[in-house]
């Protein structure tokens, strides 16, 4: 194998190693604990979606009726 190719492969191995170390050293327990404490405190698990709730200002099927909340199912109703 020629030198430039070997250097490139070593660079790739180094990058994979860095990725592996980031993956293994990530504080999973601390993160899970914080997020679980938040869920326990509020008793809510849905994601904080950045959705405009009044996006559909009219009900397409029954225009006389109010529009349904589109993300309602996420809020466990």
């Amino acid at each position: 194998m020629i030198k430039p190719f070997v250097s490139f492969i070593l660079f790739l191995i180094l990058m994979v190693f860095l990725m592996g170390s980031h993956y293994l050293l990530f504080p999973y327990e601390k993160n899970s604990h914080t997020i679980q404490t938040m869920a326990k405190l509020t008793n809510l698990s849905p994601l904080s979606l950045s959705v405009a709730y009044d996006e559909s200002s009219f009900n397409a099927t029954y225009p006389e009726m109010p529009a349904f909340g589109r993300m309602d199912f996420l809020y466990e109703r």
Binding site: N31, T34, I35, M38, L41, T42, L44, P46, L47, S48
Partner: peptide, 15 residues
């Protein structure tokens, strides 16, 4: 302010 680790759940939340 709630910790940033909880942003996935609590970004738009007021407790």
């Amino acid at each position: 302010t709630l910790p940033s680790q909880t942003n996935l759940l609590a970004n738009d939340m007021i407790v």
